[in-house]
Computed example of a mutant assay.
Amino acid sequence: MRGATALTQDIQKAGFYPELVLDTVSEALDGLEPTAHLVQVETHFDQNEVHRHITVLVVAGEHLLVAHLDDQNLDDEGQQVLAHVSVETLHISKLTTLTVSYSYPQPQDYAPGHPVSEVSLLIAWTGSHRLDIQPAECAEPSCDANHGYTGLVPREDMLIRISTSADGAEATEKARRFARTLRSAHLNLGRRR
């Protein structure tokens, strides 16, 4: 159970509602054994508020589990908090785009095995869709006619960026290994079709 143990340790180390994240991921795996995973906690600032969220990606056989949890303060004091959790499990063959980008400092000094300073992973799939609708606007400022609605159905995708300067060399190398495992699984499934 090396894969499950390492996943548990990384979720606990992330420290963002670890018991909730562990239960959610375990339930979604439904007994599947993780072969690779990536855990990322991000913090961003929105005016006077600090927001954190965690994303957990797990490769288990021919499946990719995408779990995301963020929280929301329901009062000004931060005493009432609500967690939003979403989990999508998809067959790796459903990935439409898998782009892995690496950054190398001082490329003139590159030698095989040289560590990367950043890994970016873009994953797109044909899974859930989100419909963003808003009233259509008219270019004429004095117009008060109803122009209906306009909307977008953006493709579900995810961009994860891990850098040595922000996350540490160990996290960057883990991201690189995860990307290799996911790419290998994706290529192998593509060859079988």
Rank of each mutant, 00 (worst) to 15 (best):
G31M: 04
G31R: 07
G31A: 10
G31P: 02
G31T: 00
L32M: 07
L32Y: 09
E33G: 01
P34M: 11
P34G: 03
P34S: 04
P34H: 08
T35S: 10
T35V: 03
T35I: 04
T35P: 07
T35C: 06
A36H: 05
A36C: 03
A36K: 07
A36M: 02
A36L: 03
H37G: 08
H37W: 01
H37E: 05
H37K: 09
L38H: 12
L38E: 09
L38M: 10
L38Q: 13
L38G: 12
L38S: 13
L38Y: 13
V39G: 15
V39T: 14
V39P: 03
V39D: 15
Q40P: 00
Q40I: 06
Q40F: 02
V41S: 04
V41F: 01
V41A: 01
V41E: 09
V41L: 12
E42W: 00
E42H: 03
E42V: 01
E42Y: 00
E42T: 06
T43L: 06
T43G: 06
T43H: 12
H44E: 08
H44I: 00
H44P: 01
H44R: 14
F45R: 08
F45A: 01
F45T: 00
F45D: 00
F45E: 09
F45H: 14
Q47W: 02
Q47K: 13
Q47V: 15
Q47E: 13
N48L: 12
N48C: 04
N48E: 12
N48S: 11
E49R: 15
V50Q: 11
V50H: 02
V50E: 12
V50F: 09
V50L: 07
V50I: 14
H51S: 13
H51V: 00
R52F: 05
R52D: 06
R52T: 02
R52L: 04
H53N: 14
H53Q: 14
H53F: 13
H53K: 04
I54N: 08
I54L: 05
I54E: 02
I54G: 00
I54P: 04
I54C: 12
T55M: 07
T55S: 14
V56S: 04
V56P: 06
V56A: 05
V56C: 09
V56N: 11
L57H: 07
L57T: 03
L57I: 12
L57C: 07
L57S: 12
L57N: 08
L57F: 05
V58A: 11
V58I: 09
V58W: 10
V58E: 11
V59I: 10
V59F: 01
V59L: 13
V59Q: 15
V59S: 02
A60M: 00
A60R: 02
A60C: 02
A60H: 09
G61A: 06
G61W: 03
G61V: 02
G61I: 10
G61K: 05
G61S: 11
E62S: 13
H63N: 12
H63F: 11
H63I: 00
H63W: 08
H63K: 14
H63P: 01
H63S: 14
L64N: 05
L64H: 08
L64Y: 10
L64Q: 08
L65F: 12
L65M: 15
L65C: 07
L65T: 08
L65G: 10
L65W: 05
V66K: 10
V66S: 04
V66P: 06
V66N: 15
V66A: 03
V66Q: 08
